[in-house]
């Protein structure tokens, strides 16, 4: 199976332009970029993909050991860049994928020319002298929350959620399909995402980076954005007016403008 199929890679824009790889976070899939990527498709070779277990990725490629830490997802990013032979990559990572991009750049610094980190958090759980915003109990609650919301889908919807092409008629019933995911893989991804601690990895990266911090972000509070900026050499922090955790959806124009101005420097 090729990496392109595994990660449902989609490429837009001029083939010889500078590549821009957009990585979605926990919860949905590459549709998260639908209001953002077209703005870059004239000047960049835009690469979209789904993490394994999300969207149109190949679920059979999921392996608990490989994806036991965010490093597994970062390896996927490096493999995608390798297979497409991308150089001087602009990596745009939302939420947990900001961390995934940092890990990918730490392993292959020469491949990445710039990182855009939207709502990054290197650790979600509070620690001594560090406020991530959550406790371990909160994360358990998230898993419960995912459980109750998958309840209604569990048997009838499972084939669709798992991307079963045998019964296309079910596809239309699944209104929440942008966030479809195999429940067990989603729970695994949630655990890996919210229980990981990548604070020490910030020092491994010196790629020019932009931290895009939202207002009133319930997942990555402003103190965390400042922490990332402070510990990440060569980084800039832009505070967005957009509130919430998904400015790529709620305030695409402001997001596009911030990324463009950073890349124009």
């Amino acid at each position: 199976m090729s990496v392109v199929q595994r990660n449902n890679v989609a490429v837009h824009g001029p083939p010889d332009a500078r590549p821009m790889v957009l990585a979605h976070g926990f919860g949905c899939d590459q549709n998260m970029w639908r209001y953002v990527w077209p703005a870059f498709a004239e000047d960049y070779r835009v690469v979209l993909f789904d993490h394994v277990g999300a969207g149109g990725s190949d679920v059979s490629a999921f392996d608990r050991d490989r994806y036991a830490s965010l490093q597994g997802y970062a390896t996927d990013v490096n493999e995608i860049c390798g297979e497409l032979d991308l150089e001087d990559v602009v990596f745009v990572g939302h939420s947990v994928s900001a961390t995934i991009g940092l890990l990918a750049a730490a392993v292959e610094p020469d491949r990445f020319g710039a990182l855009v980190l939207i709502g990054p958090s290197p650790r979600y759980i509070d620690d001594e002298g560090y406020v991530g915003g959550f406790t371990r109990k909160d994360i358990e609650e998230l898993l419960d929350s995912m459980d109750s919301n998958y309840l209604g889908w569990s048997s009838a919807m499972a084939p669709v959620i798992m991307g079963n092409a045998d019964r296309p008629e079910l596809g239309e019933e699944l209104t929440n399909s942008f966030c479809r995911a195999d429940p067990e893989i989603a729970a695994h991804f949630a655990r890996v995402t919210f229980l990981s601690d990548n604070r020490a990895d910030l020092a491994r990266v010196s790629t020019p980076s932009l931290v895009l911090q939202c207002s009133q972000d319930a997942i990555a509070p402003e103190t965390v954005g400042r922490y990332v900026h402070h510990h990440l050499e060569n980084s800039r922090l832009i505070q967005l007016d957009a509130s919430g955790h998904c400015p790529n959806l709620s305030a695409p124009e402001e997001t596009i403008a911030a990324i463009s101005s950073f890349l124009a420097e």
């Binding site: 976070g25 926990f26 919860g27 949905c28 939420s95 959550f134 909160d138 994360i139 358990e140 609650e141 998230l142 898993l143 419960d144 929350s145 995912m146 919301n149 919210f194 972000d217 319930a218 997942i219 919430g244 955790h245 998904c246």
Partner: peptide, 8 residues
């Protein structure tokens, strides 16, 4: 936990 679910 619900807040994370809401945001994501």
């Amino acid at each position: 936990g619900g807040r994370i679910y809401h945001e994501t």
